[in-house]
C-alpha cells in the first residue's frame, strides 16, 4: 500500500513537470516577455524603459529555460521556467499579471462554479439513469425505439443551440429567469436554475443512450434470466439485479469526472455571466495572462490525476479482485 502511494505521487510529480513544460513552451512560443509587458502597460506612450522595468519587476527578465551566464546549478535555476514552476507545486499560484492573487481568485470563483456544476452533475445523473432504466424496461417496444430516437436527435444538437435557444425563449420571451448574472449565497439558485436545466438537457442524449446499452448488457446476462425464470417480478429484477450491477461501470466512469467539476463550465459560465473558473479560463486565454493559464492548466492536471486515482480506488472497492500493486 505504502509503495503504491509513493509510486503514485512520484508519477504525479513527473506528469506535472511534463504538463508545465508543455504549457511553458507553447506559451512562450507565442508570447515573448516583451509582449506580456506591452499587453499590461497598454498601447499608449510605452517606452522601452517602462517595458524593462515591468519585466524586471515581474521576474521575466531572465532567460526562459537555460541560463548560460549563471554558474553551476544556477544555469537551470536562474530561469523563468524554474522560478515560475517551483512555487506551483506548493499550490502557491502567485499573482496574475494584473496583480490579483490567483489563489484567492480561484477560491472565490470555485463557489459559483460548483453551484452550477454540482446540480448539473447530480440532476443529470439521476435523470439520465432514470430514463435509461425506463428504456431498458420497455426494451424492444415502440417506447424504447422512440426514446432512442429522441436521444440520438438530442445528442446531434450542439450545446450552443441549447444555450442560445434556452436563453432566448425562457429568459427573454417568457421572463422566467434573469438573463444572466449571479449572486452569492442562497439567492444563487435563481441565476443557476436555467443554466442547470440547459446543462442537464444538453448532456441528456448521449449519457442516457450509453446507460441504456449498459442496462441492456446486464439484462442479457445469465443470472438475470435465472432470476426471471424463478418468477421474480420484472420490477424486482430491474431494481435489485440490473440496476445494482450496471451501476458499477456507470459510477466508476463518473468518478473520474468529479474532480473536473471544479474547473467550471466554459460555455454556460460565459453565456450566463457566472463568475466561475470556466469564465476565468476563457478570460485568461483572451487576455493572454500566462500566470493564470499556467495555474489553471496545473490545477486541471492535478484534478485529472486525482480523477485517475479515484477511478482506481473505486475499482478496488467494487471489484475485490483488483488490488493495489
Amino acid at each position: 500500500m505504502l509503495a503504491y502511494i509513493v509510486r503514485r505521487v512520484l508519477y504525479a510529480i513527473l506528469i506535472l513537470i511534463g504538463v508545465n513544460l508543455i504549457t511553458f513552451v507553447l506559451f512562450f512560443f507565442v508570447n515573448s516577455p516583451d509582449d506580456m509587458a506591452r499587453m499590461q502597460l497598454g498601447a499608449k506612450y510605452v517606452t522601452p524603459d517602462a517595458l524593462q522595468k515591468w519585466k524586471a519587476d515581474h521576474g521575466y527578465d531572465k532567460p526562459l529555460l537555460w541560463n548560460s551566464k549563471a554558474s553551476g546549478p544556477g544555469k537551470a535555476t536562474e530561469t523563468i521556467f524554474y522560478e515560475k514552476s517551483l512555487r506551483l507545486f506548493a499550490f502557491d499560484f502567485g499573482a496574475a499579471e494584473d496583480g490579483r492573487n490567483i489563489g484567492n481568485e480561484i477560491r472565490t470563483r470555485m463557489g459559483p462554479s460548483l453551484a452550477l456544476q454540482i446540480p448539473v452533475f447530480v440532476v443529470a445523473l439521476c435523470v439520465n439513469i432514470t430514463f435509461a432504466l425506463f428504456l431498458a424496461f420497455f426494451r424492444a417496444t415502440y417506447l424504447d425505439f422512440w426514446g432512442v430516437v429522441l436521444c440520438v436527435a438530442m445528442m446531434s444538437i450542439s450545446t450552443l443551440f441549447y444555450i442560445i435557444g434556452g436563453q432566448y425563449l425562457i429568459s427573454k420571451v417568457w421572463h422566467l429567469f434573469p438573463i444572466s448574472g449571479y449572486a452569492g449565497g442562497l439567492d444563487a439558485w435563481r441565476f443557476v436554475l436555467l443554466p442547470v436545466i440547459i446543462g442537464v438537457v444538453s448532456s441528456f442524449g448521449s449519457s442516457a443512450r450509453l446507460y441504456r446499452t449498459l442496462f441492456l448488457e446486464e439484462y442479457s446476462k445469465d443470472y438475470v434470466r435465472t432470476a426471471r425464470a424463478k418468477g421474480l417480478a420484472e420490477r424486482v429484477v430491474m431494481f435489485r439485479h440490473v440496476l445494482q450491477n450496471a451501476m458499477i461501470p456507470i459510477l466508476t466512469g463518473v468518478v473520474a469526472a468529479i474532480p473536473f467539476l471544479f474547473m467550471g463550465a466554459l460555455l454556460s459560465e460565459s453565456f450566463f455571466g457566472i463568475p466561475g473558473l470556466g469564465s476565468y479560463t476563457i478570460d485568461a486565454i483572451q487576455a493572454q495572462d500566462f500566470a493564470v493559464v499556467r495555474s489553471m492548466v496545473f490545477l486541471g492536471a492535478v484534478l485529472y490525476i486525482i480523477g485517475l486515482l479515484l477511478t482506481d480506488i473505486s475499482y478496488t472497492l467494487v471489484d475485490p479482485r483488483v488490488r493495489f500493486d
Partner: peptide, 19 residues
Amino acid sequence: FPAILSYRKRERMAARPAA
C-alpha cells in the same frame, strides 16, 4: 400515459423472454 399502459401489460406477462 403510454408508459403506464405498457407497464400494466408487461406486469401481466411476467416471464417474458429477454429482448
